[in-house]
Amino acid sequence: MSGIALSRLAQERKAWRKDHPFGFVAVPTKNPDGTMNLMNWECAIPGKKGTPWEGGLFKLRMLFKDDYPSSPPKCKFEPPLFHPNVYPSGTVCLSILEEDKDWRPAITIKQILLGIQELLNEPNIQDPAQAEAYTIYCQNRVEYEKRVRAQAKKFAPS
């Protein structure tokens, strides 16, 4: 494992614990031996107030490669969400998460999670990743928002 990646992720964890947006979660997972795995984080993004996503808490896994922060983490909703920019596998399609697009090593975990929260309610229809959600979003916004509200209710924190 890269010392650069681990040191950056340790800084990220410290900064997150000191200050993070209300309702968001970002925690490194534990290895079988109980030690912390900084390369694999369990996160959760709350649906934004005043949107059909409100009330939901959407679980996301963030996986970092050894060359982080040169390369972005892979962000994957578990379980996958109904959304035009979420692949059926759950992987998020967002330009700041793509090395050859808008990724920059200075982007923080907090910025990534806030960017994904923004994307939930403002899909990028130029870059669809899920045919069904994309089609319904474009053709029947009322039905799309109904499905999103049902999903938010399903993923409401207990």
Rank of each mutant, 00 (worst) to 15 (best):
S7I: 07
V148C: 12
R61I: 09
N40E: 15
G47D: 06
Q111D: 12
K110G: 05
E78N: 14
V27P: 08
D67I: 05
R8L: 15
P88Q: 15
E12V: 04
Y144T: 02
I116W: 02
M39F: 13
H83L: 01
G47E: 02
A133V: 06
L38S: 01
K48R: 13
P46I: 09
K74M: 15
K18A: 05
S2F: 14
E122K: 10
E143Y: 10
L57N: 09
E98H: 15
I136W: 13
L94Y: 03
R104E: 06
A10M: 15
Q111K: 15
P52H: 14
E12W: 05
N85H: 01
Q139Y: 14
P72V: 05
H20L: 03
D102F: 08
L81E: 00
L120G: 04
K76M: 13
S89V: 06
Q11T: 14
A44G: 14
Y87C: 01
E118I: 10
F77D: 00
I107P: 03
R104C: 11
E145S: 06
T135P: 05
I116Q: 06
E12K: 02
P123F: 03
T135M: 09
T91L: 14
D102R: 02
P52L: 09
A129H: 04
D100G: 14
Q139G: 07
R61G: 10
A152G: 07
A10R: 03
A5H: 15
R149H: 10
Y137V: 00
Y68I: 02
S70D: 05
Q126D: 10
P72F: 00
I96R: 09
V142A: 13
I112C: 11
E54D: 06
K153M: 13
P73M: 15
A10E: 01
P69N: 00
L60S: 06
P79W: 14
F64A: 03
F58R: 04
K30S: 11
T108W: 14
P28G: 15
K146H: 14
W16Y: 06
T108R: 15
L119M: 10
K153L: 10
C138Y: 03
R147G: 07
S89P: 11
K49V: 15
V142G: 13
F22R: 00
L63R: 12
V25T: 07
I109D: 03
K65A: 04
K153H: 08
C93Q: 06
A131G: 13
A44I: 11
I4K: 06
G47K: 02
